[in-house]
Amino acid sequence: MLRMRYIAVFIFLSSMIFFGCFQATEEKGVLNQWRDNALPPIEKGKTTETQILELLGPPSQVMNLGDQVIFYYMMEKTEGKGGYLLIYNWNNKKIIYDRAIFFFDKNRILKDYALSKESIEYEKSQ
């Protein structure tokens, strides 16, 4: 009986000794300046294509839709976490997207825009 207990304790301790863990983050895409609180207000029917480019820089993708132009900005953040024990391991990866989309009419005035519901914390570049 005592021997069994020793074995159980040995297994538990072994799984603790052979322990490893990690956490990693990776970011891709354009800087999410649309989350900057200091940004001047963006207004439908007033803000121009040039102003958006000046404020946010080059978009991730520019699309043509009839006589409209679309600017699509995207930032991707990958968060990875994991733990390795002798008996049990886990590895979780979460990819978050922070997006902004701007529709301009034929006069290059902002017609519509939207920001994603999920956001990545904005960190001003140095």
């Binding site: 069994m4 297994i11 391991n89 886990w90 590895n91 979780n92 999920e118």
Partner: peptide, 27 residues
């Protein structure tokens, strides 16, 4: 009871490196 404990120990003695890998993309 001892038989149950033995099964439990055998179970843990043979199990090794059970893993769960999760990937979540977008919200």
């Amino acid at each position: 009871i001892n038989q149950e404990k033995l099964k439990f120990l055998i179970f843990f003695f043979f199990l090794q490196g059970c893993t769960v890998i999760r990937s979540q993309i977008d919200y």
